[in-house]
Computed example of a mutant assay.
Amino acid sequence: MSSPAPRDALSRADNTDRIQVAQLLTDAAAQGRLDLNEYESRLARAYSAKTYHELDRLASDLPGIATTPRGACRALPKSLVLGILSSFERRGRWNVPRKLTLIALWGNGVVDLRYADFTSSEVEIKAYSIMGIQSILAPPEINVVVEGTKLMGNIEDAASGSGASGAPVVTVRCFALWGGIHIKRKKRRPLAIPAD
């Protein structure tokens, strides 16, 4: 998946290969080729796949998807998102960097990871809410670790725990001062199919 060169189907796949197949499956779901249940089932199997053979089988019945070369999947290094006296949103299909810093200062924000493409198997999110509120929504299959400090604020952790074996691990480090940070798991809704 990470290289168009021939390979042994029984060779061990790596995290980059699993992430790339997850992105291909998301493409197929967005095009209406997979319904929500099939998409989530294949996504969990992609993250836990050990060999190229297992990964290839997940997309073999998706013509045009499995054969589209995407090149190597490179992790985005880091990103900063600010909501100062304003708000921010990251929803829909977007690339999650390896490190993401969220700052809500007298503002609010929403980061929705349910339809996002992960570019790394380990993601660190630093969330700071100072008199602001943030929500981080995680899909069922990812692994979530929440750590935090609050001073007259609130950190609501309804997401910590294991997801699918081999799925990305998202560590959320929180700081809330007179503000709130809410991390929760939320199921996906069926993707809207674009009209022609």
Results as ranks from 00 to 15, higher is better:
Ile19Pro: 07
Asp14Gly: 13
Phe88Gly: 00
Leu24Trp: 02
Pro63His: 02
Val96Trp: 12
Asp14Arg: 10
Thr16Asn: 10
Asp35Gly: 09
Leu102Lys: 05
Val111Glu: 05
Leu10Thr: 09
Ile65Cys: 05
Thr26Leu: 11
Leu102Gly: 02
Tyr39Phe: 15
Asp14Trp: 06
Thr26His: 04
Gln23Phe: 06
Ala46Tyr: 12
Trp94Val: 00
Gln31Asn: 05
Gln31Arg: 15
Asn37Gln: 10
Ala44Lys: 15
Pro77His: 11
Ser48Asn: 13
Ala30Ser: 07
Ala44Gln: 14
Leu58Cys: 08
Thr67Pro: 04
Val96His: 12
Arg57Lys: 14
Glu122His: 13
Trp106Arg: 10
Gly64Ala: 05
Leu25Pro: 02
Leu80Glu: 08
Gly32Met: 13
Gly109Ser: 05
Leu34Cys: 04
Arg98Asp: 03
Leu76Asp: 05
Thr119Trp: 08
Ala49Gly: 05
Asp35Pro: 10
Pro77Val: 10
Leu62Val: 04
Arg7Cys: 03
Ala72Pro: 11
Asn95Thr: 03
Asp112Phe: 06
Val21Gly: 02
Thr119Ile: 09
Glu54Ser: 04
Leu113His: 14
Ile103Phe: 14
Leu34His: 04
Leu34Val: 04
Thr119Tyr: 10
Arg93Val: 02
Ile19Cys: 13
Ile84Ala: 07
Tyr115Asp: 12
Pro77Cys: 03
Arg114Ile: 07
Thr16Gly: 14
Gly71Asp: 08
Gly109Leu: 06
Ser120Lys: 09
Arg12Val: 11
Leu62Gly: 03
Gly107Gln: 06
Gln20Trp: 05
Thr67Gly: 14
Leu58Asp: 09
Cys73Asp: 05
Tyr52Trp: 09
Ala28Phe: 00
Pro6Lys: 14
Gln23Ser: 11
Ala46Arg: 12
Gly83Met: 00
Val111His: 04
Leu100His: 12
Val21Ala: 07
Pro97Gly: 05
Val111Lys: 08
Gly109Val: 07
Thr67Asn: 13
Arg7Ala: 01
Gly71Asn: 05
Leu24Val: 01
Ala116His: 09
Gln23Asn: 13
Ala72Tyr: 07
Leu36Gln: 11
Ala66Ser: 11
Asp27His: 03
Arg70Gln: 06
Ile19Trp: 14
Ala30Arg: 10
Arg33Leu: 15
Arg7Gly: 01
Val96Asn: 08
Pro69Leu: 08
Ser86Asn: 03
Ser121Arg: 15
Arg7Pro: 04
Glu122Pro: 04
Ala30Tyr: 02
Ile65Thr: 07
Arg74Leu: 09
Tyr115Trp: 12
Gln23Pro: 00
Thr101Cys: 07
Lys50Ala: 03
Pro63Thr: 00
Gln23Met: 11
Leu82Gly: 00
Leu25Asn: 00
Ser79Cys: 08
Leu82Val: 01
Val96Gln: 10
Ala29Val: 00
Ile84Leu: 13
Gln20Ser: 14
Ala22Phe: 14
Ala49Met: 08
Ser120Asn: 08
Tyr39Asp: 01
Ile84Trp: 06
Leu100Cys: 10
Pro69Asn: 11
Tyr52Glu: 03
Pro69Glu: 12
Gly71Tyr: 07
Tyr39Ser: 01
His53Met: 13
Ser41Gly: 05
Ile84Cys: 02
Gly109Arg: 07
Leu25Thr: 01
Asp112Ser: 07
Pro77Asp: 14
Ala9Gln: 10
Ala5Pro: 00
Arg45Gln: 15
Asp117His: 10
Gln20Ala: 12
Ala75Phe: 09
Val123Lys: 12
Thr68Asp: 13
Leu24Pro: 00
Thr68Ile: 09
Leu105Thr: 13
Ala75Met: 06
Arg93Trp: 01
Asn95Phe: 04
